[in-house]
């Protein structure tokens, strides 16, 4: 879907991208991870047709980004880092402007506008001025505006910057939902916990180059549609042995460690199984004080790779 091969880009003598390559398959949600100045924004701007690469080839869905930028803009939704909105326009006017800018017409245009308002949760504030919205609402409006022309690829540059925790959770859920609908997403972010939660893969970048982790992987597999077991840490008010016994017969659940007040579990299968595991523990009379997912180690790997320069 997204193919970047040996791309170079220089700004005033500074190498922003240096022989960088990337491949994102259709339907993947890939996180672009690296320290500040790594080249993430430059790469996303090249993909969104805002910048031209000095060398190398970049294509989306088989279409060359340099040769056919208009076709790329039809299929790509791009949300820039700290992008702005027209504060002196009403919410509906702003969406109408971008609907016209993407040549939407007729009932398709009206449907897209209504969907965008619903997506942004701003149906009741359609006639309000943008400047009167909260930061979180503006971010939702920006995302809704980005999705107005139903792109098949979404390029997001630090979309969670400045969002409060609840808004971040909403953004994560929204991106997961979009991804489950088949949208291919490339997202750059410094919030590794978010990436770990939503991304299928993470790609490491530093100094404009591909970076491999200590195991030699250029891409780190994170979430693979329930195929990979997920690790959970459960805090209890005693009764770890009883809890382990209650879960012993549950398919897909493996107790890795059972200390006095703590369980470490591996849960394989659909998300419902996670909820079932917690329900069984509570039904067995175990007092659960914490039930937290432990990541696949993106942060540890990030530290191992970029520890010196992040």
């Amino acid at each position: 879907m997204i193919e970047v091969e040996h791309v170079r880009k220089t700004f005033n003598g500074t190498q922003a991208l240096d022989d960088f390559s990337l491949r994102v398959k259709k339907g993947e949600l890939v996180g672009l991870v690296g320290p500040n100045g790594a080249g993430k924004t430059t790469l996303i701007r090249i993909l969104s047709t805002l910048l031209l690469p000095d060398r190398g080839t970049v294509s989306i869905d088989g279409t060359d980004v340099v040769r056919n930028p208009a076709s790329i803009r039809r299929v790509v939704g791009y949300l820039a880092d700290q992008s702005g909105l027209y504060q002196d326009m009403r919410v509906r006017e702003l969406l109408e402007f971008f609907a016209d800018a993407f040549h939407l017409q007729g009932t398709g245009r009206n449907d897209a506008l209504e969907n965008a308002l619903v997506r942004a949760g701003l149906e009741s504030r359609a006639e309000d001025f943008v400047e009167g919205l909260s930061f979180g609402m503006k971010q939702r409006l920006m995302l809704a505006k980005t999705l107005l022309h139903s792109p098949s690829v979404l390029l997001l540059d630090e979309p969670a910057n400045g969002l409060d925790p609840i808004a971040r959770v909403h953004l994560r859920d929204f991106l997961k939902e979009l991804n489950s609908q088949g949208l291919t997403i490339l997202i750059s972010s410094h919030i590794l916990a978010d990436l770990e939660d939503i991304c299928t893969h993470a790609v490491l970048i530093s100094g404009g180059k591909n970076v491999v982790d200590e195991e030699g992987n250029a891409g780190i597999a994170l979430r693979q549609a329930g195929r990979k077991p997920r690790l959970f840490e459960v805090e209890l008010l005693g009764g770890a042995e009883k809890a382990a016994a209650a879960l012993a017969t549950m398919p897909g659940v493996q107790v890795l460690e059972a200390a006095a007040t703590r369980l470490r579990l591996s849960i394989d299968g659909p998300d419902e199984r996670i909820a079932d595991t917690l329900r069984i523990l509570v039904s067995a009379g175990i007092t659960v004080t914490s039930f937290a997912r432990r990541g696949s180690g993106l942060e540890q790997r990030y530290r191992a790779v970029f520890g010196g320069n992040s």
Partner: peptide, 8 residues
Amino acid sequence: AGLLTSLL
């Protein structure tokens, strides 16, 4: 950027 990445 929003203008330049639209179909305008």
